[in-house]
Amino acid sequence: MARRATQEINAGSMADIAFLLLIFFLVTTTMDVDTGISRKLPPPLRGDEKPPDINERNIFTVLVNSRDKLMVEGKPCDIRMLRERTKEFMSNPQNREDLPEMISKEIPGLGIVRVPKNAVISLKNDRGTSYKMYIAVQNELAAAINELRDELSQEKFGRKYSELLSEKQIQAVQKAIPVPISEAEPENIGEK
């Protein structure tokens, strides 16, 4: 054969180069996934706007003071009880007069569901509340809502809310059980 041998690049060190780069990326890589509790802030209040008037029975007030103590619906409460209390408020299983009014509402994809008419969880904290307590409270409220969503989803679709696959089902459950957390306007804004 008269074919001229083409000159080849020596690829023997290729592995070494790749190893070097590999080790560099191994060292610099951080595998931490950012996780957290997502919330949406309300748009700022305009001066002349008054907060909407909501019936007392539809508001679930949670106050956290500067010593990290909780007051729920006017009474001191332990944070361990908060999840159950929130669930009770949101579902009102015995149709109690002091808990929100429940209505049967038709939601596309779910049929007729018993939902609170306009329940609001009002969360208010002091400037001296510790951040970990605030997050714990937010977490318990979120947990209560997630548990209710799980129950509804289990009943309607036979699987947990977090395991729902179709976007339609997720939206239907979200519509039936929204996250009605409203944070009170801080009162002493501007002063330290």
Partner: peptide, 24 residues
């Protein structure tokens, strides 16, 4: 303490950055 966090949140509201995430 929540004081400084509240201030930051108010500032975010004014700036129109409504989507927040508390890192945990």
């Amino acid at each position: 303490k929540m004081g400084i966090v509240t201030d930051v949140k108010q500032e975010l509201r004014k700036s129109g950055a409504f989507k927040i995430n508390y890192s945990t």
